[in-house]
Nucleic acid binder design. Structure first.
Lengths: 189, 189
DNA sequence: GGTCGAAGCTAATAGGCTTAGCTTAATGGC
DNA sequence: GCCATTAAGCTAAGCCTATTAGCTTCGACC
């Protein structure tokens, strides 16, 4: 019997695919092992356990969304950049419904790669805010508002929280308009 | 041996207390049974299973938060009401970290009580928006923004997503200011 | 070609949910 | 006050997931 040839990297990559298919909370070692063609305990040669798997998935997903946000911001400024990044963020959440929740795991302070990825994602937002003249402590507040707003929207959306027939894309659009207005007035308060 | 005297209502109530203590995801039938002084399978006389328990908890929590929001809005209008309701919402999430996630479960369309509670919670927000002159389809969009913003903030906060030392209360304050600005400009776009 | 580390396995334990089927406490009618 | 009925509670058993221990064997490298 030839070996499956797994590595920690291939395992977590497959975990990401599986999570997107079945949902973040149903990412199970049993299902993952089955898909990789090995017995469940074999996974422990590559991952320390289910929590470590989620941790690694968080790093992967955070790095991915950081890339997405960064390239959406490239070459744009102001409200243009704001909208592009917000749309890209939501797009990632839609394309990767299982990975997305992993991006919200608090970065492991002992993992430089995780910290760097989180830093990069936040950096894309901070860069936009500079275009609005928002900096320093105010930028921290404004970044938190961006994250809260967009994260809140996509999670409510994913949870089926928007029951009414009113078009969800349009609501998102209006919300970004509102965010733009808020940021333009950010200094003058 | 006397009986424990449980009912569906007492079971769900204890589940709510337990969830607040150990976290929504660690609300387990085993722990609940232990705390109620019965064997685990006995719970099935009162609840259909773990999913039904979460469902009932959702109804309870949604009704509670609807009450909190409604009374926060009472006797206030405009930015005053907006801030009071937002603060009350966040306060509920802080006081009831285990119940709060249950409020985000999509209402069961077959459960009138659940629907009514959700309706009541949304109603408190819609009432505020009337004070800003926002109505109709625009009110749907604006309500979604309110929920996204505040829900996003409290979940990021609970997940430890705000790493920087900058005061979180102040960030929340600024965010509500931003929301106020957005709503004041809502019509003129 | 032999050696050795790591990749994979089976077996066993522990905890969680669920169903089946039994026992018995409480309640309501006579 | 006694008995019948209902439902509250129990034990036992089965399934799934995670984890650990200890064994086997592939395959890379000298």
């Amino acid at each position: 019997m030839p070996r499956a040839g797994l590595t920690p990297v291939t395992v977590v990559r497959e975990a990401a695919v599986l999570a997107d298919e079945v949902g973040h909370d149903r990412l199970t070692l049993a299902a993952l092992a089955g898909r990789l063609g090995v017995a469940l305990p074999s996974l422990y040669k590559h991952v320390r356990g289910v929590d470590a798997l989620h941790q690694k998935l968080a790093v992967l997903a955070t790095a991915e969304i950081a890339d997405v946000l960064t390239s959406a911001a490239a070459g744009r400024a102001g409200g243009d950049a704001l909208r592009a990044v917000a749309v890209a963020y939501r797009g990632y959440a839609h394309r990767h419904p299982g990975r997305y929740p992993a991006t919200q795991r608090a970065p492991d302070p002992t993992d430089p790669e995780h910290l760097a990825a989180a830093e990069r994602a936040v950096g894309a937002i901070v860069a936009i805010l500079r275009g609005y003249g928002v900096q320093g402590d105010a930028a921290v507040d404004a970044t938190r508002m961006f994250r809260a707003t967009v994260h809140g929207f996509v999670t409510l959306e994913a949870a089926g929280g928007f029951g009414l027939p009113r078009d969800v894309d349009r609501s998102f659009d209006r919300m970004i308009d509102g965010l733009d207005v808020a940021y333009r007035g950010w200094g003058s308060r």
